[in-house]
Design a protein around this nucleic acid. Structure first.
Length: 294
DNA sequence: CCCCAGTCCTGCGGGC
DNA sequence: TGCCCGCAGGACTGGG
């Protein structure tokens, strides 16, 4: 499931298309139910055909491809969507094909096995309404520890659930929420309003560290193998997960078999019952060390 | 404001 | 061995 590191990796892989011109936009025949494309494909085609791509950005978990009219094509991968410059994993789930000219790549593809993703073309005004700060919080990599604490400290929600709320901060998803709380040594069920300033500092530092490291490894390709970068290559961070999908295994911090799985807001959470206590306690020496290495 | 359950969807793995 | 059910969860929606 693409979260910030995976979407950032997709974005970086897309950079070679800046300067290319869009020749056409097609919706390949798909046996299954088509994904949502807004506006209708013929309207989309009229607005982007002949336009030059000026930038490839990211907002939270979405890739933003801007063209010289000011419009932006937003790719929202959700669970299984991929933005590709190479051949997709299968031809079956190809959802959108953008043909290009004037650059090294001939086409940009949106592939999505489960079809929960969406592609939309938005004007600058629509972009602000749909993806501005009123709708989506500041990017997880750009907000400060103070901003993070200010926007969450009064909430009575559990910290792990609050981290998934894209209106508070954008980019953290289910996998990295468990990972960063483990590095911070904070219990996922601890209420935000009960976190101490030192814990907010650790959560913020761990968030930056985990996300940046995951970006260096080009994201996590889970056992279903779905996530790929723009060239259809796997990520590497799945080999460095501390707790995610490791229930019953040894905790990398304390070395004991203490990793457990619980469910919060209908989603799996993994944590170490020994290193992440509900009550206040200082970070373990090992956690502190790994944070300072950041 | 907050929370919860339901919705979309496909592939896979556990259990029988 | 084969089949079926349930699970995976990002974002959104409607009801409490």
């Amino acid at each position: 499931m693409p979260e910030l590191p995976e979407v950032e990796t997709m974005r970086r892989g897309m950079l070679p298309i800046v300067g290319s011109t869009i020749k056409d936009v097609r919706r390949p025949p798909c046996a299954k139910r088509p994904i949502l494309i807004q506006p209708r494909i013929d309207v989309l085609r009229r607005r982007v055909k002949g336009r030059t791509i000026t930038s490839v950005d990211r907002v939270g978990k979405r890739v933003v491809v801007r063209v010289d009219s000011g419009d932006a094509i937003i790719f929202e991968p959700r669970m299984t969507g991929l933005v590709l410059l190479a051949a997709p994993p299968t031809s079956e789930h190809l959802r959108l094909q953008v043909t290009l000219s004037g650059g090294a790549h001939r086409e940009l593809l949106f592939w999505d096995r489960r079809g929960l993703g969406l592609v939309r073309l938005v004007s600058p005004t629509e972009f602000e309404t749909l993806y501005g700060l009123a709708k989506l919080g500041p990017d997880a990599l750009s907000l400060s520890a103070e901003q993070m604490r200010d926007c969450l400290r009064k909430s009575r929600r559990e910290i792990k659930v609050a981290l998934l709320d894209q209106r508070a901060l954008a980019g953290v998803g289910n996998l990295y929420a468990s990972e960063l709380l483990h590095m911070a040594g904070v219990h996922p069920q601890k209420r935000c309003d009960l976190l101490r300033p030192a814990e907010w500092q650790r959560v913020h530092a761990a968030m930056i560290e985990v996300l940046e490291t995951a970006i260096r490894y080009e994201g996590s390709t889970l056992s279903d193998g779905t996530y790929r970068n723009a060239l259809n290559e796997q990520g590497g961070y799945q080999n460095h997960h501390r707790v995610y999908d490791r229930a019953g295994e040894v905790c990398p911090s304390c070395g004991k078999v203490e990793i457990v799985r619980i469910v919060q807001a209908q989603r799996a959470t993994f944590f170490c019952a020994r290193c992440q206590r509900r009550s206040h306690q200082p970070a373990t020496a090992k956690n502190r060390k790994s944070l300072h290495r950041a």
